[in-house]
Amino acid sequence: MTERKLRVLVGKPGLDGHDRGAKVVARAFRDAGLEVIYTGLHQTPEQIVAAAIQEDVDCIGLSILSGAHNTLLPKVCELLKEKSAEDIAVFCGGVIPEDDIPGLKSSGIKEVFTPGTSTEDIVAWVKENIHG
């Protein structure tokens, strides 16, 4: 049986311009043999969801350091649902206070990686939880 190549979208929603973390994670996925669609900075939730659907990715990894995570991340999950694409898993990383994590998870975010997480852990999580 032919095997699926895992595809992941890495993007930065909103207005902060700090993309080093997103690039490091994208590179780690590449080295783990994934195809990474990197959409870059300043993406709206609408653009992220449209890109994820057109690219038929298995999951979306969002990096956010602006503090707007409680607004932008649930919006991505909501739009995915609207497009009947909630099978595309969303995870995120960035400066996210512990107190906000339960709320994000109940809005549909599958996992939240806070500062200090190693790239190995993120790759391992994706390989274990995301199936093409």
């Binding site: 190549k5 994208a26 590179r27 996925f29 590449r30 080295d31 783990a32 043999g33 994934l34 195809e35 990474v36 669609i37 990197y38 959409t39 870059g40 993406q43 709206t44 609408e46 653009q47 969801v49 449209a50 890109a51 057109q54 690219e55």
Partner: peptide, 29 residues
């Protein structure tokens, strides 16, 4: 595609993603 890991970073969308939510455009990397 990386000849060593089989992975890839597909970054062409960075320059064109403003068209992503235009229904008259479909982009595939």
């Amino acid at each position: 595609t990386s000849p060593f890991t089989g992975g890839a970073i597909l970054g062409d969308r960075i320059r064109m993603n403003r068209h992503a939510d235009d229904e008259g455009v479909f982009i595939r990397s």
